[in-house]
Amino acid sequence: MSRTTVQPNSAIPVKVKRRKLSPERIVSVCTPLVMLLLWWMVSLAVGEKYLTSPGKIVTTMGVLFTDGYVGTNLTTHIVASLFRTIGGYVLAILLAIPIGLWMGMNKYVSAILSPVFAVIRPIPAIAFLPLFIMWFGIGEVARVMLIFMSAFLYIVLNTFSGVKTIPNGLIQAAKNLGANRIQLFSKVIFPATLPSIMTGLKAGLAVSWAIVVAAELMAAQEGLGYMIMDAATFFRMPVVYVGIVLIGLIGLILENIISIIEKKSCHWSGK
């Protein structure tokens, strides 16, 4: 009686699933490419005098990384701007989140501070520049404080708003289950406020990174803002474009970092 042996590695078709790009993803990838193409075409039409081409910007950026700008390497300018931004931003986080939570949880604190923030909120941070120069001089402290002021209001108000939007039924249910004040804060109030805090952190970081240009007007000798202003003074337009592009790209990276942290810490949000 003959046997039929089955080879273990016989040809069994295995279907490999390939991830298809969604139309939204395709549009997101193609849009920057189309914008670069349009930019290049317009720069050819109007001339490099009025609009520097993407190729010239890339070439100038390479030269700046190699030779620096006014004797300072481009990496040093980037690090200086990041240092000022992160310094003011972290200081804002350390003060704004506790104050926002305190305002949301205590009606008397809210009654005291809400009018103050209502008056300060419409004032652009750049308006405080002369005061900071008078109070702190023209050194790093004044620049960091200007960035701090710009981020602080966004974070504290978003945190306060997050606490106030927590449903009263949720808090009452926790109390009925016997939660004490520490448990109520750690298990209900803070987790429920966290999405609003992250929104404030994203907005605060974006504003902090944008205001660094104004902060570096105060007798700075390093930084992207200083480089842009100095290059504009001497009409070195390719350098100006390099600074602008770098601020945009670094800002995008910083925003994505905060978005990743938000997805990890608020994974339940929107579900």
Score class of each variant (00 low, 15 high):
residue 102 W to K: 08
residue 114 S to K: 13
residue 227 M to D: 05
residue 131 L to K: 02
residue 192 A to Q: 12
residue 10 S to P: 01
residue 238 P to C: 10
residue 140 E to W: 02
residue 21 L to F: 10
residue 163 V to P: 04
residue 16 V to Y: 00
residue 52 T to Q: 15
residue 109 V to W: 06
residue 45 A to D: 10
residue 138 I to P: 09
residue 188 V to T: 08
residue 263 K to Q: 13
residue 230 D to A: 14
residue 108 Y to M: 12
residue 60 T to F: 04
residue 168 N to A: 15
residue 27 V to I: 11
residue 148 F to L: 12
residue 43 S to C: 11
residue 262 E to D: 14
residue 72 T to F: 02
residue 169 G to N: 10
residue 267 H to E: 03
residue 204 G to R: 00
residue 162 G to C: 08
residue 102 W to R: 09
residue 235 F to P: 02
residue 268 W to T: 01
residue 219 A to P: 00
residue 37 L to E: 10
residue 102 W to N: 07
residue 27 V to K: 08
residue 171 I to T: 12
residue 101 L to H: 08
residue 183 Q to H: 03
residue 9 N to D: 15
residue 108 Y to N: 11
residue 202 K to Y: 02
residue 229 M to A: 13
residue 110 S to C: 09
residue 196 S to G: 05
residue 246 L to Q: 03
residue 124 P to F: 07
residue 179 A to Q: 02
residue 175 K to R: 15
residue 7 Q to S: 15
residue 247 I to R: 02
residue 137 G to E: 04
residue 105 M to S: 12
residue 206 A to R: 02
residue 13 P to A: 12
residue 77 H to R: 06
residue 114 S to R: 11
residue 82 L to C: 13
residue 145 M to A: 04
residue 63 V to T: 14
residue 187 K to A: 12
residue 10 S to K: 08
residue 39 W to V: 12
residue 217 L to S: 15
residue 243 G to L: 00
residue 145 M to P: 00
residue 144 V to A: 08
residue 107 K to S: 14
residue 113 L to A: 11
residue 77 H to L: 10
residue 162 G to N: 00
residue 187 K to I: 00
residue 243 G to M: 00
residue 241 Y to I: 12
residue 113 L to T: 11
residue 57 I to H: 08
residue 264 K to C: 08
residue 26 I to Q: 03
residue 18 R to E: 13
residue 112 I to P: 03
residue 217 L to H: 10
residue 6 V to G: 14
residue 147 I to E: 03
residue 181 R to W: 11
residue 63 V to A: 15
residue 210 A to K: 08
residue 73 N to P: 04
residue 92 A to Q: 01
residue 44 L to F: 13
residue 158 N to V: 05
residue 49 K to H: 08
residue 93 I to H: 05
residue 65 F to P: 04
residue 225 G to C: 10
residue 170 L to A: 12
residue 253 I to P: 03
residue 113 L to S: 11
residue 175 K to Y: 13
residue 45 A to I: 12
residue 27 V to M: 08
residue 66 T to A: 14
residue 146 L to H: 03
residue 169 G to E: 07
residue 94 L to V: 14
residue 25 R to K: 12
residue 216 E to R: 13
residue 43 S to N: 05
residue 155 I to Y: 00
residue 143 R to D: 06
residue 158 N to K: 03
residue 259 S to M: 12
residue 131 L to Y: 08
residue 223 G to C: 15
residue 216 E to G: 12
residue 49 K to Q: 14
residue 140 E to G: 07
residue 127 A to C: 14
residue 26 I to D: 01
residue 189 I to L: 01
residue 235 F to Q: 11
residue 41 M to Q: 14
residue 199 T to H: 05
residue 28 S to W: 04
residue 35 M to F: 10
residue 199 T to S: 09
residue 56 K to D: 15
residue 69 Y to S: 06
residue 212 V to I: 12
residue 242 V to G: 07
residue 49 K to P: 07
residue 143 R to I: 09
residue 67 D to N: 13
residue 89 Y to V: 09
residue 232 A to G: 04
residue 172 Q to S: 15
residue 246 L to W: 02
residue 57 I to T: 15
residue 129 L to K: 07
residue 46 V to K: 04
residue 39 W to R: 09
residue 218 M to K: 11
residue 198 M to Y: 11
residue 59 T to P: 00
residue 271 K to M: 09
residue 231 A to W: 02
residue 101 L to P: 09
residue 65 F to T: 07
residue 135 W to P: 04
residue 137 G to L: 08
residue 119 V to A: 13
residue 69 Y to M: 11
residue 245 V to Y: 01
residue 48 E to P: 07
residue 76 T to M: 06
residue 255 E to A: 10
residue 133 I to W: 01
residue 136 F to P: 05
residue 35 M to C: 03
